[in-house]
Amino acid sequence: MITTFTIKKAIDKRSGFVLPLVVVFLGSFFTMATIFYLFNLNQRPVVDILDRSAFADYIASGMAEILKLKVKEFPEEFRDTMKLIEFMQKQNQKPWDNIYLSYAGSGNEAPYTYFFQDFVIKKSAFNQGASDAWASDSLVGGKPAEAWEAHWNHMLHYLLTDETAQYGAGHDFKDNAAFKAHFKTLLAKYNVLVNLRDVRRDHIGLTQTAGGAEEYIGDIITFSFESQYRDQQNHRTKRSHVVTFNHTRKFTN
C-alpha cells in the first residue's frame, strides 16, 4: 500500500511535464506518418525517373547509330554540311538555331540544315503542333504536352516512313510500320524525347600520299544528344548523351 501510494504521488508530481512531452512526441510522429502516407512520399518516383533516364540513354545511343549509318553512307554530303557549319561557327553565327527550327517547307531550311534536321524533333511539318506544344510547355487537353507525341510524330512520319505514306507505294519498308506502333507504346509509357544538339569533327584524318590506290582514313566525330523527360515533381528535366564515332572512310587517290 505504501509503495503504490508513493508511485502515484510521484506520477502526480511529474505529470505536468511528462504528459505534454508524450502528447507532442506521439502527435508529431502520427502527423509525420499521416503526411508521408497522404502525400505518398515514397521511393516510387525515384524508380520511375531511373527507368526514364535508362530508356533515354538507349534511345540516344540508338539515334546515334542511325546518324552513324547516314554519315557512313553519305560521307561527302556529311563533309559538305560540316564545312558549312564549321565556317558559320567561326563567323560567330549559329547554324544549329536554323537546324532546330527547320522542317520541310519552312523558311529556315538551308543547305546545312538537311543532313541533321531528321534527328531534331522540331522538324517535320507533320510534327509542328506537338513539338510546339512541348517546346512551350503548354497544356494539351488540360495537362502538360506529352514529349512522346512530338517524338513519335517525327519518327513515325519521316525518319521511319512506310508504304502508306507519300511516295511509299510499291517499296519495301520492311518492319517500319510495325516498329512504329511498338515504339509509340513505349514512348508514351516513358514519355521521353531525344534531340540531336551538336555534331563536331574532333579529328579529320589525313591521306597518306605514298599509299595505294584506295586508302581508309579515320575521322573522329562527336554527336551530342539531349533527352528530356519529366522528373519526380513533373518538371521537365534534361540529360546529355555524347557519342564518339570513329568514322573510317574510303579514300581514292
Binding site: I66, K70, D118, Y158, L159, L160, T161, D175, F179, H182
Partner: peptide
C-alpha cells in the same frame, strides 16, 4: 525489327 530509315541529303 528490320528498319529502313529515310534520310534527306
Amino acid at each position: 525489327h528490320d528498319l529502313v530509315p529515310l534520310c534527306s541529303i
